[in-house]
Write a protein that binds this DNA or RNA. Structure first.
Ligand SMILES: NC(=O)c1ccc[n+]([C@@H]2O[C@H](COP(=O)([O-])OP(=O)(O)OC[C@H]3O[C@@H](n4cnc5c(N)ncnc54)[C@H](O)[C@@H]3O)[C@@H](O)[C@H]2O)c1
Ligand SMILES: NC(=O)c1ccc[n+]([C@@H]2O[C@H](COP(=O)([O-])OP(=O)(O)OC[C@H]3O[C@@H](n4cnc5c(N)ncnc54)[C@H](O)[C@@H]3O)[C@@H](O)[C@H]2O)c1
Lengths: 212, 212
DNA sequence: CATAAGTCGTGATTAATTTCACAATAGTAT
DNA sequence: ATACTATTGTGAAATTAATCACGACTTATG
């Protein structure tokens, strides 16, 4: 918990690096250069070296990085050994998709319960995850600290308040609502409609070259 | 297509502003200040003013912005009057969710067709969108320029090549694969597993305050 | 052992984005 | 009219991120 000096932009790329290193390891590759990594994850090689350097000297000059070592290092850094439990609120179109997927592969997160207000949904399970009625939120949530929000936007504020009262620390919000939370709670918004519109805007208004 | 001087960070926020202005307009509000907007969309008010200023002086000092005027301005800027047609590839968990949703509300994008390799899926429709077999991609796609990719990662490269050959210009990629495309094609990656892992990383490693 | 080729780590630089802070000005009240 | 208040638009500063470019070091090769 010491390296709070790591830039946010770097932190966001770590899971990406980790996943690719994992693939390399499974393929039996022993070494990798920042150049190879760069081509695979589409991040400039200097940026990759800089990112890694925040954690110390992980590679060897003239050689590159040892895949197994680097993977082990990131496993520790990203806490891949302890599983973070997650609750999902709203078992509709999106929620069901997430439950079926459940971020299973090389991931340290697991959706362990879901809630819905529709009584016909709030029983049984989807993808092995038990669904409870939203009225049971406070009773069931236990010490789960992360929630995924896939409810209608109009419900977002009310549910957020309840989650905060339950001691939640992080929310991945898929609703278009920009929710308000106390300062110590982290919210990441993923606004799919905005992403699509932004892509269309870039296509129409930016000269046809260069990525992102 | 002139204002290519608009920062990308600004461009990505435009759809968000547009949506909120639309809400205000429906509520019958006539004026709004950057401070109010800021609270609603969780973007610093100075940033909002700066963003707007790239398009000229849209507000009035001491007063704020006229909602209707601003909305009209952004409608034109964001091409809200012409609908961009989109194709979706891969009618699985995620793809089905998107088809059912179809970005209908105040949006200028519409999924008009979908493709899947599974013969049992590639007939009929989901959410009113016709599903075709992926073999028909080249015949059916017509002049659709934007695609959403919700297929397994292993299929991403092959399908991308075919899309590029069909003249696609933008891809919203939900697979974990970092696809390679010619320079003039724009790809936005939305990597849900990475987003979740990044949130967890921030929770564990960053001091408990301030958002994003 | 000497030389060549490859690659890291990083200081310096550049670019992009956000934020501060305030003069200018429109609206409002008296 | 005048004073007061609110709020913009924007230079300047600060912050954050990306990129360049090269010395130092490792490995491979003859
Ligand atoms: N599906 C998409 O492709 C898509 C795209 C962009 C944004 N979104 C956003 O994601 C969210 C979910 O979308 P969706 O398509 O899955 O919607 P949906 O209507 O299919 O699902 C919402 C689910 O939430 C449940 N629900 C409603 N109120 C609740 C409450 N108070 N507590 C618990 N559960 C409650 C409903 O019963 C339903 O099952 C929405 O905010 C939507 O705007 C969805
Ligand atoms: N579902 C999630 O929550 C989730 C989360 C993170 C990432 N993803 C990624 O999104 C993608 C889709 O996920 P999903 O859960 O919807 O998978 P899925 O397996 O449910 O759906 C994939 C669909 O693609 C179809 N398909 C396979 N090969 C095809 C081809 N060559 N052409 C056309 N269609 C083809 C399959 O028939 C299937 O219907 C995957 O890459 C996955 O890694 C999904």
């Amino acid at each position: 918990m010491e390296q709070s000096k790591i830039p946010q932009a770097t932190a966001k790329r770590l899971p990406l690096y980790y996943r690719f290193l994992n693939n390399l390891n499974h393929q039996g590759k022993a070494r990798v250069s920042s150049k190879e990594l760069s081509e695979a994850v589409k991040v400039d090689s200097a940026t990759i070296r800089r990112d890694f350097s925040y954690f110390g000297a992980l590679g060897k000059k003239g050689y590159g990085y040892n895949v197994e070592y680097l993977l082990g290092f990131f496993r520790k850094t990203l806490d891949q050994d302890e599983v973070t439990e997650v609750a999902l609120i709203g078992v509709g179109n999106l929620g069901t998709a997430f439950l079926n997927y459940n971020f299973t592969k090389n991931n340290n997160t697991k959706i362990v319960m879901a809630f819905d207000s529709d009584p016909s949904k709030s029983e049984g399970n989807v993808g092995g995850v038990p669904i409870y009625h939203i009225a049971e939120l406070e009773d069931r949530i236990g010490d789960v600290k992360v929630a995924i929000l896939t409810i209608p936007a109009s419900e977002a504020d009310g549910i957020t308040t309840r989650l905060v009262d339950c001691g939640i620390e992080g929310i991945l919000n898929f609703t278009p609502a920009r929710i308000s939370v106390p300062e110590h709670i982290r919210v990441h918004h993923i606004d799919l409609a905005v992403e699509l519109q932004a892509l269309v805007y870039f296509l129409k208004h930016y000269p046809l070259d260069e990525g992102l």
